[in-house]
Design a protein around this nucleic acid. Structure first.
Length: 443
RNA sequence: GCGAUCGUAGCUCAGUUGGUUAGAGCGCCGGUUUGUGGUACCGGAGGUCGGGGGUUCAAGACCCCUCGAUCGCCCCA
């Protein structure tokens, strides 16, 4: 029989396993914990939507829509698209489910997104994002709350160092249009000096010339007018409220007047948390206000703000990855003991302890693996233990070993776990004391 | 979509100007040690050299195509 060629994974997809998966999981779990602190509700969304959901809201001419979407016709002849982002789908859900009644609605989502792009470090065709949105809140406090959430998330992930929040305003629709006209005029005057890419951008998305990396574009982009001169008093006031709010909450930010957003629906606040540790994919979390979007989907004028963050990118930045922990390693030897191991494991698991059975390889190997799994203790079961009913319970940290029955083991494990928690509490207290001392000194 | 670099064992890599049977370390399995984590020593399994075509007496090395990875551009989280 001819050997069958194993199918290869699709380009730009990942099989996330081992430490990578721990990183991924830790990012998601931290996000889930922090979003509850900010009273955001979770939402599960479909992975595909009618193509119009994205083409309408992102803008037909954007690269995402014109060349990066996974669109296909289903068997009923409808054009569907694997979601390239969360915001448009959430906005659609907001309208089709009548979620207006819950406004202002604070939502989070996370999961896979799809874009047909050239894969690179931190860039995949199926990638994963965290997403947070506030729909139906036109006040600057919503922007501030969202940014505090983002800031705290990065803090708790331990990656806030080396990440800076860059902030800009695109003004309201009027301001933005006036600024845009001024920019077009400016760039038109220097058209010949611009790079080929930027001449093209001048037609499609003139704002994008501002953050061009092309060296020859820089002088022209740097000399371009800032939005500030074109801001209406309302827009100016709005931005001031955002920055004041951030200062009041102790969120560090820097103004980047060249920061623009790629998608058409953004208004007012635009922001990016940027690191220099990921090469060309330095943006780790980004978003802004999109007051115009819901209307483009046929809904009533509804203000909204949101952000998204790449889970893979956040995962790559983690310096401390929590280890997978196992509490009990059950090491049987002999057929009877192997059969017994399952029921012992079950009993312990039902009491709430994590347990795994190390039943293959020679005995020494089993112990080594139990140790490698990071188990707190090993339970050794052999002929003698089956006869006496007293299992060998070995504390893998101290090496001490005693014969105990299952009830005694659970008791012992509660103690072990409790003393672990106490240690954690101790170090927390210690850190707290130091904080207090420091703030005392600085006064 | 464009440019550049790279694909050799599960992983990280070596392999001279083309020349017999393609190597190392780590990992895996076994032994020294019939039931105790480490170390050391010994042994073993594992590769159609990403795939296809070509040049040559001879290709892992050279040429072409293709697939994939990486780094930029573009775009974007």
């Amino acid at each position: 029989m001819a050997k069958i060629q194993t199918p290869q994974p699709v380009r730009g997809t990942q099989d996330i396993f081992g430490e990578e998966q721990e990183r991924f999981q830790h990012v998601v779990e931290t996000f889930e914990r922090v979003r509850r602190l900010y009273a955001f509700k979770g939402v599960e969304m479909p992975v595909f939507e009618p193509t119009a959901v994205f083409s309408r809201s992102l803008g037909e001419t954007t690269d995402v829509v014109s060349k990066e979407m996974y669109s296909f016709e289903d068997r009923g002849g409808d054009s569907l698209t694997l979601r390239p982002e969360f915001t448009a789908g959430i906005s659609r859900a907001f309208l089709t489910n009548g979620w207006q009644q819950h406004m202002p609605l604070k939502l989070t989502a996370h999961g896979p997104l799809f874009r047909y792009e050239r894969p690179q470090k931190g860039r995949y065709r199926q990638f994963h994002q965290l997403d947070a949105e506030i729909i139906g809140a036109g006040e600057a406090t919503a922007d501030v709350e969202l940014l505090c959430f983002a800031d705290q998330l990065l803090q708790e992930l331990g990656i806030a160092d080396g990440v800076t929040l860059q902030l800009n305003t695109l003004g309201d629709a009027e301001s933005r249009n006036a600024w845009r006209d001024a920019l077009v005029e400016h760039f038109q005057a220097h058209r010949k000096e611009l790079s080929e890419d930027s001449q093209d951008r001048l037609e499609r998305n003139p704002l994008r010339i501002l953050d061009s990396k092309e060296r020859q574009d820089r002088p022209i982009a740097d000399a371009a007018p800032d939005i500030d001169a074109y801001l209406s008093t309302e827009a100016k006031e709005f931005f001031a409220q955002v920055t004041e709010g951030l200062d009041a909450c102790g969120v560090a930010w820097t103004r980047n007047s060249r920061l623009v957003r790629g998608l058409d629906y953004y208004r007012h606040t635009a922001f990016e948390f940027v690191t220099d540790r990921l090469g060309a994919q330095g943006t780790v979390l980004a978003g802004g206000r999109y007051d115009g979007l819901i209307e483009t989907l046929g809904g009533p004028a509804t203000p909204a703000v949101g952000w998204a963050a790449g889970i893979e990118r956040l995962g790559m930045l983690l310096t401390e990855v929590p280890e997978a922990s196992l509490e009990l390693a059950i090491v049987p030897t002999g057929d009877d003991a192997t059969a017994k191991a399952l029921s012992v494991a079950n009993e312990l698991r039902k009491t709430g302890f994590s347990a795994d059975i190390f039943g293959s390889g020679k005995f020494k190997k089993r112990m080594a693996r139990a140790n490698q799994a990071g188990a707190l203790a090993a339970i050794i079961i052999g002929e003698d233990e089956l006869a006496s009913g007293k299992l060998q319970f070995k504390n893998l940290a101290t090496g001490e070993q005693t014969g105990l029955d299952v009830a005694e083991i659970t008791e012992k494990m509660w103690d072990l776990r409790f003393s672990d928690d106490l240690d954690d509490l101790d170090s927390d207290l210690l850190a707290l004391e130091q904080d207090v001392k420091f703030s005392g000194e600085s006064d």
